[in-house]
Amino acid sequence: MSEERPAPQVPEGAGSAAALRAQLLATEHWSLLASRSTTQSEVLTRISILLTLASAALVSVALVGQATKFSGTFSIFANILLGVLVLVGVLTQLRVMNVSMEDLMYVLAMNRLRAAYADLAPGVESSFMTSLNDDLAGSRETYYFLGRRGVTQVLGSSLVFVVVVNATFVGLLVASLIVTAGASFVAGVISGAVVGVVYAVVSMLISGRIYFRLWKTYVPRRPTPGS
């Protein structure tokens, strides 16, 4: 006969409850960190794939151009290849936009957890460089805890980088289509440049609208005092 195992003892007392709460918070914190790291790694891989595809496409265009002496079916091949680049680029850009919002979610969630840590151990918040508040001001403090956000933070972001790459692809495609249709080279270059700039501006406006629209509907649980 098998021996009966005693039932596990459940610790009692305020100290045990606080320890259990701290353990659960830490588990959630590590889960968020792991998910954030995986998401960032995935989007960086997508960007690398886009750049690799762009490099291979340019080499292919050069080789086909030499083989066809830039006549005959070369323009058709170049337009199709540029169209594929634009499609892949737009899909990558959408993923980068989504990841940016997901990353904001992770930041707000971890801000909430730090607030819970501070409730468990009053005084520990003085050791945090990042924020305990899950609102707009709190997210900015966590992202830019060494000072105010500068324009370089935006211009150097992955989203702006992908938008510039895609704007270049779109401009090249438009210019190629216009020249293929029989227009002059100068007209194609000017049209491509204008369309590329418009694409970049519209993309940034859409991204900004998504970001600021979030704060109009989001209700923080621990807003920054005085905000």
Score class of each variant (00 low, 15 high):
Tyr117Pro: 02
Val186His: 15
Ser184Thr: 06
Ala62Val: 13
Val151Thr: 06
Arg21Ile: 05
Asn98Ala: 12
Ala67Leu: 05
Val170Met: 00
Lys69Arg: 15
Ala14Asp: 14
Phe161Ser: 06
Ser41Trp: 03
Ser31Asp: 14
Pro223Phe: 03
Lys216Leu: 07
Tyr199Phe: 10
Ser16Leu: 10
Gly72Glu: 12
Val107Cys: 09
Leu82Ser: 08
Pro11Leu: 02
Gly188Tyr: 08
Lys69Phe: 11
Thr217Phe: 09
Ser157Leu: 01
Glu12Gln: 15
Met105Pro: 13
Asn98Thr: 12
Gly13Asp: 13
Thr39Gln: 05
Ile210Pro: 04
Phe161Thr: 02
Ala137Ser: 07
Val88Thr: 12
Val219Met: 09
Arg221Gln: 14
Ser127Arg: 15
Glu42Thr: 12
Val99Trp: 00
Val64Arg: 05
Ser16His: 14
Gly147Arg: 11
Thr92His: 01
Val179Pro: 00
Ala115Ser: 12
Ser191Arg: 03
Glu4Asn: 12
Ser127Asn: 15
Phe161Asn: 02
Leu51Arg: 03
Met204Cys: 03
Arg21Asn: 11
Ser139Asp: 05
Val195Gly: 10
Thr52Arg: 09
Gly156Ser: 06
Pro122Glu: 03
Ser184Met: 03
Val170His: 00
Val179Cys: 01
Phe185His: 15
Ser184His: 04
Val124Ala: 11
Met101Gln: 08
Phe77Glu: 02
Leu91Val: 11
Phe169Asn: 05
Leu58Trp: 12
Val154Tyr: 08
Arg114Gln: 01
Leu172Pro: 04
Ser37Thr: 07
Ser131Cys: 06
Trp215Gln: 10
Ser48Met: 03
Pro122Arg: 04
Arg209Lys: 12
Ser227Ala: 12
Ala57Glu: 07
Leu58Tyr: 12
Val194Glu: 01
Ser55Pro: 09
Met1Asn: 15
Pro8Leu: 04
Thr130Tyr: 11
Gly171Cys: 00
Arg149Thr: 14
Arg5Glu: 09
Leu25Asp: 05
Leu104Glu: 13
Phe145Ala: 11
Asn111Asp: 06
Asn79Gln: 06
Val170Phe: 00
Gly192Thr: 04
Met105Gln: 13
Leu85Arg: 06
Arg112His: 11
Thr217Cys: 05
Thr168Asn: 09
Leu24Ala: 09
Ala78Gly: 10
Glu141Cys: 08
Pro6Ala: 05
Gly196Thr: 01
Gly150Glu: 01
Thr92Ala: 06
Ala54Trp: 10
Val170Gln: 00
Ser35Thr: 05
Val59Leu: 13
Arg222Ile: 13
Ala67Cys: 04
Ser31Val: 13
Val189Trp: 04
Gly65Glu: 05
Leu113Val: 12
Leu177Glu: 08
Phe169Ile: 03
Ile76His: 09
Leu214Ser: 09
Ser176Ala: 10
Val202Asn: 01
Arg140Lys: 14
Gly72Trp: 11
Leu159Pro: 01
Gly171Asn: 00
Ser16Val: 13
Lys216Gln: 09
Val61Met: 15
Trp215Val: 08
Val64Asn: 03
Phe161Ile: 01
Val195Cys: 07
Val162Pro: 01
Asn166Thr: 06
Ser131Ala: 08
Ser75Leu: 14
Leu205Pro: 00
Leu108Cys: 08
Met101Asn: 07
Thr92Asn: 04
Val198Lys: 00
Asp134Gln: 03
Ala200Met: 00
Arg36Ser: 10
Gly226Thr: 06
Leu87Gly: 12
Ala54Gly: 11
Ser31Phe: 13
Glu42Ala: 15
Val162Thr: 05
Thr142Gly: 01
Val201Asp: 00
Ala193Trp: 07
Ser184Val: 02
Gly171Val: 00
Pro11Ile: 04
